[in-house]
């Protein structure tokens, strides 16, 4: 090792400004590179909802649900399922893994703008969500024979992408609550039953009555109902109610995450 010459030891206030946009782009790009270089995560997050849609929506479907074709209905529900998975795992597992490690501490002592970390993760989970939604739309339009006006495709896609927000917050809260090793298992224990009980796999009206009673307490139910609303298959309550409930859950999860973030400050250094 050699030493760099004392080039800029007296860097004053006239130093060029760092570009926030460039930092965000680099951070998001690296988040993406990290992911595609470990394909297991991406493959399972993307293929699971797509595979379920093909099996239960396209192969077994053919009937109708909620007043629309089953392939249309399930495009909305498995779309919700996929987006929730990408957000929960994209945030939950990575935050749980990274917060316990020196890497996060190194980032925290660097002049990285703190929001860059979260912007990169949001960009990442949005990209994965968009890939899932794109795959489902292509399968729906071809194998599923889904026919809708362009505006409906667009609004369904938009609702699905925006739905990542409350579940990113949920993943974040999880990431701060659970340990790095148990994170994937804990998330699955939570995610899969919750998805089932919210009517993401089997249309909600086909579920046992007591499950239908629980569903309104679960955030994915409200998300799925919003998505179904765009294709005219919603049941139970106006869209505004679902939006309010999801925003309330988002606030709750962010509060928990912020608490966990502060708790970490004391824990990282002993």
């Amino acid at each position: 090792m050699t030493t760099p010459a004392a080039t800029a030891t007296t860097t004053g206030t006239a130093a060029p400004r760092t570009s926030l946009a460039r930092i965000f782009v680099t951070e998001a790009l690296h988040e993406f590179l990290k992911l595609i270089r470990i394909p297991i995560f991406a493959v399972s997050t993307i293929t699971l909802p797509v595979m379920f849609y093909v099996l239960f929506g396209v192969a077994l479907g053919g009937g109708e649900a909620g007043g629309v074709g089953a392939t249309t209905y399930m495009m909305a529900t498995y779309g919700s399922f996929g987006v929730i998975g990408a957000a929960l795992f994209g945030f939950g597992v990575s935050v749980a893994l990274e917060r316990g490690q020196g890497w996060m501490r190194l980032k925290r002592v660097s002049p990285m703008p703190p929001q860059a970390y979260f912007v990169a993760k949001v960009a990442m989970s949005t990209t994965v969500s968009a890939l899932i939604i794109g795959a489902l739309f292509v399968l729906g339009a071809t194998l599923g024979g889904v026919r809708m006006p362009a505006a409906q495709w667009f609004s369904l896609g938009l609702v699905l992408v925006l739905g990542a927000l409350p579940f990113s917050a949920m993943g974040l809260a999880f990431g701060y609550l659970v340990g790095p090793n148990s994170a994937p298992a804990m998330l699955n224990l939570f995610y899969l039953p919750m998805a089932f009980a919210s009517g993401l796999w089997i249309p909600i009206h086909q579920l046992p009555a007591f499950v239908q009673g629980i569903a309104p307490a679960l955030p994915p139910y409200h998300f799925a109902q919003l998505a179904l609303g765009t294709v005219g298959a919603a049941e139970g309550g106006p869209a505004a109610l679902h939006i309010v409930v999801l925003l309330a859950f988002t606030a709750l999860f962010l509060t928990v995450a912020a608490w966990g973030f502060r708790r970490d400050e004391g824990r990282t250094y002993g």
């Binding site: 760092t18 570009s19 460039r22 680099t26 951070e27 990290k34 020196g102 501490r105």
Partner: peptide, 24 residues
């Protein structure tokens, strides 16, 4: 720091670029 957990799948150049970008 006594760092652990540096992303294993980022290249040396990428890691250095990331941090250089934070400084004016």
């Amino acid at each position: 720091l006594q760092a652990s957990g540096v992303p294993q799948t980022l290249r040396v150049r990428e890691l250095l670029t990331e941090f250089r970008g934070y400084y004016p």
